[in-house]
Amino acid sequence: MPTAVLLAGVGIIGFSAFLGGLTGFGFNLLASPMLLVLGIPPAQVIVINLALALCTRIVVVFRLGAHIRWRKVIPLIAASVPGLLFGMYVATHVNEQALRWATGITAIVAAPALLLWRSREKTLSQPLYAASGFVGGTLATTTSLNGIPLALVLTADNVERRSMIADMAIYFVVSNLIGLGILVAGSGLRDLNWTLILLWLPGALLANWVGNSLSPKVPRQAFRILTCGLVVVAGVSTLVSG
């Protein structure tokens, strides 16, 4: 692989990991379309993103583990498993371009609506969390953009910021690990590019730690706007990169 691509990847992964640490979910949303633009095959992009997101979130789980809301997280993770399997099926039967357009348009439409809408419920139901987990799992093995439904449901539920980041972290660790196992079982090791993962991991860990450390200093409304804005950017980038 050309040196220019490797170096560009360092910057892309580092910046994506920083925003991922800041918001709890932005890593895959930004890294996926940018890596595709670099010319990395989609199947490798998915594996690389899931692996790096998993590694960076392990640190967050240890750091914010006390803030995990297990009653809401367990339905998210459990429902992601059939979603991961369904995503594998979809990826082999549906045109990749159609998947990109569906994901991008959903993100662009959902984020502004979410920013203006406030839930009348004190908390969102567990079935809604489960539905979000299933969609996230489906997106994980089709586009690696599994942060979109998670960010939408947690933001709509007005979850306290540390709990939001902690919930996302444990979800990404467990669901991504299962997803990687499913992908490797389905395709063997041909999409598992250890060179890129090991080259980009140190910068991702450092950038994620910096972003996570700065997260408490961002005002709540600005954090909400940034979260929704990243969803829109991801949606547009996904359409453009397709």
Rank of each mutant, 00 (worst) to 15 (best):
R162H: 15
I58N: 02
P112N: 09
R162F: 04
L114D: 01
L152K: 08
F25C: 10
I225D: 00
A107H: 00
L145S: 08
R57E: 01
Q221V: 14
V174Q: 05
R162K: 09
L145I: 11
F172M: 09
G65T: 09
G87W: 08
L54M: 14
M34P: 00
R190I: 14
A79N: 12
V231N: 05
I58T: 02
L205A: 04
E96R: 13
I148D: 01
T56D: 01
E160M: 13
Q44S: 14
L54I: 08
P41T: 12
L54E: 07
M1T: 09
A110C: 03
L177V: 11
L145D: 00
V109Y: 08
T123G: 08
L19D: 01
A113S: 09
I13R: 05
P33N: 10
N176D: 15
A79W: 07
A111E: 12
M168Y: 00
P112A: 08
V135N: 02
L6Y: 05
F27D: 00
Y129I: 04
F27M: 14
L52M: 11
G26C: 10
R71W: 00
A31P: 05
P219K: 10
K122M: 15
V218E: 04
N95L: 05
A102Q: 04
P75K: 10
L30A: 03
P202C: 06
Q44M: 12
I170L: 11
W101Q: 07
S175D: 09
V90K: 05
L35E: 02
V231K: 02
R57G: 05
S16D: 06
P2Q: 13
A107W: 00
W101V: 15
G104T: 04
I77R: 09
R100D: 03
S119L: 07
I48N: 00
A185G: 13
A207M: 11
L196E: 06
P219A: 10
R220S: 05
S80F: 13
P219Y: 10
V45N: 04
V153T: 15
C228P: 04
P127C: 12
V153H: 10
H93N: 15
V174G: 00
V153W: 13
L6P: 07
M164V: 05
A8V: 04
R220A: 04
L116F: 10
G11D: 12
L85Q: 13
M168G: 11
L116C: 04
D167T: 08
L205F: 12
P41E: 15
V61C: 07
L192G: 07
G133W: 09
W117E: 01
A102D: 01
V109W: 03
D167W: 03
G65R: 06
A91R: 15
S132H: 08
A98E: 08
S132N: 07
G21Y: 10
R100A: 14
R190W: 11
L201F: 01
S187R: 14
I182D: 03
V210S: 02
